[in-house]
């Protein structure tokens, strides 16, 4: 039967246009002086100059990065240790770990933030500290991404047998885990981390509820600039989008590189 090759291509094209068009218009809008008719009246870089000349902008971007990295380390360490314990000592624990790590999927971030705030606000200088609270809320929010990425990576290697092989060669369990298992999980850890970072980096609601104005990120700056001209806020959105795209792009490029390398190696081995 002759297949119609145009239909799938056309579908992909329509969907792509549907998805890209708002971003494209936003991008164009951030460069226009004004837009009254069908076409823009003129183009300018003034709004980007204004964004970058705002002394709060770059620090707020950096704050976004910092508040992303700390929860990733904490969540990552917790998941790795929990999975290590379950794989090595009690595999039945894994279903419990999985359930716990998946709970945040069912909880909206706003509900989580309000609950944490209600529970810990005013509870001493450490737990009651807004930045500490924010860090731990993010730890919970990103748990499903971190868990899934690391778990998938661990499934691809026979952890138990690799550790047994190392033990027979004279290594301790922990030494074997650090020298053999963790290096084999790096790509999974990296991808999970970058996905989690993208999630935190673009968050506005949780940080607004938990930290208020104590930790100004680019998302909050955007909210505060809502009365400025639309081109100004469009420029901020586009810069943040590009920063997130860069982070995700790095993750996918690394993954593709690793996949290609593994494919080439296995092809060479077969030959």
């Amino acid at each position: 039967m002759k297949q119609n090759r145009w239909l799938p291509a056309l579908t992909i094209l329509v969907v792509s246009i549907f998805l890209i068009l708002p971003l494209l218009i936003l991008g164009i809008y951030s460069f226009v002086t004004s837009w009254d008719g069908i076409a823009p009246n003129g183009y300018t870089l003034d709004f980007y100059k204004q964004v970058f000349s705002d002394p709060r902008f770059l620090p707020s971007l950096m704050r976004g990065l910092v508040i992303s990295i700390i929860p990733i380390f904490l969540s990552g360490a917790a998941v790795i240790l929990a999975l290590y314990t379950s794989i090595m000592y009690n595999p039945r624990l894994e279903s419990i770990i999985q359930s716990i790590c998946m709970i945040p999927h069912t909880l909206k971030g706003v509900i989580l933030a309000i609950s944490v705030l209600g529970l810990y606000a005013g509870k001493g200088p450490v737990l009651g500290n807004r930045i500490v609270m924010l860090t731990f809320v993010y730890c919970i929010v990103i748990l499903p991404f971190i868990y899934q990425g690391i778990r998938n990576n661990l499934r691809a290697i026979n952890v138990q047998q690799l550790i047994e092989a190392a033990e027979i060669l004279g290594a301790g369990k922990l030494y074997a885990f650090v020298r053999i298992i963790i290096p084999n999980m790096l790509s999974g850890i990296l991808i999970s981390s970058l996905l989690a970072m993208s999630t935190i980096f673009t968050d506005f609601a949780i940080i607004k509820i938990v930290a208020g104005s104590k930790w100004l990120t680019a998302q909050q700056l955007l909210y505060n600039a809502r009365n400025n001209p639309g081109q100004y806020t469009s420029a901020i959105v586009l810069i943040m989008f590009l920063a997130t795209l860069l982070i995700s792009g790095v993750a996918f490029a690394m993954q593709n590189r690793a996949d290609r390398r593994a494919e080439q190696d296995s092809k060479a081995a077969k030959e």
Binding site: I168, A171, I180
Partner: peptide, 28 residues
């Protein structure tokens, strides 16, 4: 296991994927 002075080869080889042949053999 490490006190027994025993060598073992597994069904699925269990080579350390992040190490070269040299590093695998030199590990112990």
């Amino acid at each position: 296991p490490k006190q027994r002075d025993i060598g073992m080869v597994f069904q699925q080889y269990s080579l350390f994927p992040n190490m070269t042949v040299r590093q695998n053999v030199a590990f112990g």
